[in-house]
Write a protein that binds this DNA or RNA. Structure first.
Lengths: 155, 155
DNA sequence: CCTCTATTGATAATGGTTCTCATTATCAAT
DNA sequence: ATTGATAATGAGAACCATTATCAATAGAGG
């Protein structure tokens, strides 16, 4: 780990898209790889700043935009006014597909992986049908449930 | 239509929640009822201003917040930096359930109602399961597909 | 009609995100 | 290894959708 070149998997994709491989991009992708939380741009900025104090917030935003465009990272809106980012794929993430339960009261976000099998089957069918009908290339999807969590429903 | 009291259906819900019924709230809800577009707060402000020139933008935001909280209106994020609003239910909207295809290129949004039957069945099952497992009251859900539309995929 | 207070409109403030630009770093060609 | 073209960066200003403030107004029960 650390400086090892197990990270090479994404460098090829970067170069293939015409992007240069930089220390900032590597460390930002690292931060996303090493967590299963829903990080905001500022979360990532503060985390990355520890090992790379000179990095700027704008670089974090710019890098995240590229990562989202390439499909390596997913961007979510949980309704609290700031975007959240999660690794979409990678060496340890293939089987990490999940969706979100968002509490309208405390804004807490619960990841769930239940019912994913049925969902995947329906989504596969739906994506295929939509692609054909609208001639639309589907790259990703978002499924979110809104409601009140255990604590907030009693208030 | 117009000043008729066919709008009474929502007035009871307003009063039941402790909110007063005002001209501004009525006309904002009217604007949402009379369209099937995804309106931003400013879209609604400009539309409502025609028949109610004195209304303020802040009132539109405040009213939308209440409508979303009551579940009468759904709030979406299509990734262009401003929220969009759609009527969730009402006298003519019960059978209007649909989801969104969002083009990452031109930001166009396509509504689709295909495969809704299968989806509804899966969602019903999923919502039931999630409610029980996490003791979470689900009020609404969002399903969105991201990708490239017919025009943008060729560029 | 009157009172209480929620609501409103105008506007300032907020804050996440994007833009600007001079400087620095990447990388293919040498 | 060096160089040159140019992509990337950092600092901070700018942007702009949304929220907060506050005095004036209007809804609704009595």
């Amino acid at each position: 780990m650390g400086r090892c070149r197990g990270n090479a998997w994404w460098q090829g994709r970067f170069r293939g898209c015409g992007y240069r491989v930089t220390a900032g991009r590597e460390i930002i992708l690292d931060a996303l790889t090493k967590t299963d939380k829903h990080l905001s741009a500022e979360d990532i900025y503060l985390s990355v700043k520890k090992s790379c104090p000179g990095i700027g917030l704008a670089t974090v935003y710019r890098t995240l935009e590229i990562l989202v465009e390439m499909g390596l990272v997913l961007k979510f809106d949980f309704g609290d006014g700031r975007a959240r980012y999660e690794l979409a794929e990678g060496p340890n993430k293939e089987a990490n597909h999940h969706h979100h339960l968002i509490c309208a009261g405390c804004k807490r976000v619960i990841d769930y992986t239940d019912f994913i099998e049925d969902e995947v089957e329906l989504l596969r069918k739906t994506e295929k049908g939509l692609s054909e009908k609208y001639n639309f290339d589907i790259k990703s999807h978002v499924i979110q449930f809104y409601g009140l969590c255990e604590k907030c429903k009693t208030k």
